[in-house]
């Protein structure tokens, strides 16, 4: 079954949302989602890296030997991450500072490696680019929504503008680590509720995208739930 271009694009936003459904790339999402602006910034970086690396990997899929494909992917991804890092440093130093170590960590973000392995090395350049954009948008959307929730309740502001902080005291725990885990858990529960029943078939797909898939069954019997 061939998917239309639009389907490829929208796939990543809800149905196969990389964070909430595939549960990939959790670390940066949790860490940076304390402020909405960081969510958008991180999302944009991931979007750019994901799209570019998808395009390159898809273009080079015939050249890259199968046995060393993972190191090659990592090199490609790391290159784009470095570019993004340098651009941020030059033009948005504040954001660079806020995102800190999580920018270089995009390299090991499993979303990107996962898409390269699961999509880009099997599909055309255009499709891969669309997939990258879709997945990137899905990521951005999730990170931003999560960051909005945490910022609004945790510090009473939204994109830095005061909303409720003057009305009642903010519940600051939400911008701390426990709040991150909790809001993330709730969002996943919400998506579980919305996609009731459909999630299961995606789970199978998910393991294929995991670089450690071949070890998964040994690490955890009964499949991988991350």
């Amino acid at each position: 079954m061939k998917k239309s271009k639009l389907q490829i694009l929208t796939n990543g936003i809800i149905k196969e949302n990389p964070v909430l459904v595939l549960v990939l790339g959790t670390c940066p999402t949790l860490a940076i989602s304390t402020q909405a602006i960081n969510g958008i910034g991180m999302g944009a970086c991931v979007l750019v890296v994901l799209t570019c690396s998808n395009i390159i990997i898809s273009a080079l899929k015939k050249i890259i030997p199968d046995t060393v494909r993972i190191p090659c992917y990592i090199t490609v991804i790391a290159t784009f991450v470095t570019i993004v890092q340098l651009v941020l440093k030059a033009y948005a130093p504040a954001l660079d500072k806020a995102l800190g170590v999580y920018i270089p960590l995009i390299v090991v973000n499993c979303i990107i490696l996962g898409r390269a392995e699961a999509f880009a090395n099997k599909n055309s350049v255009v499709d891969s680019a669309l997939d990258g954009i879709g997945m990137g948008l899905g990521y951005t959307l999730t990170a931003t929504v999560m960051a909005c929730i945490r910022e609004l309740i945790g510090s009473g502001t939204l994109f830095g503008a005061t909303i409720t902080a003057n009305l009642f005291s903010p519940f600051t725990i939400l911008i701390m680590a426990p709040g991150g885990f909790f809001v993330f858990g709730c969002l996943i529960a919400l998506v579980n509720k919305l996609t009731k029943g459909k999630v299961k078939e995606k789970r199978v797909n998910k393991c294929l995208t995991c670089p450690g898939a071949e070890f998964c069954n040994e690490v955890q019997e009964g499949g991988c739930d991350k």
């Binding site: 549960v23 680590a177 426990p178 709040g179 991150g180 885990f181 909790f182 993330f184 858990g185 709730c186 996943i188 529960a189 579980n192 739930d225 991350k226």
Partner: peptide, 9 residues
């Protein structure tokens, strides 16, 4: 995973 995250919280 959702409840696991709440437990982590």
């Amino acid at each position: 995973i959702a409840s696991t995250l709440v437990a982590a919280s």
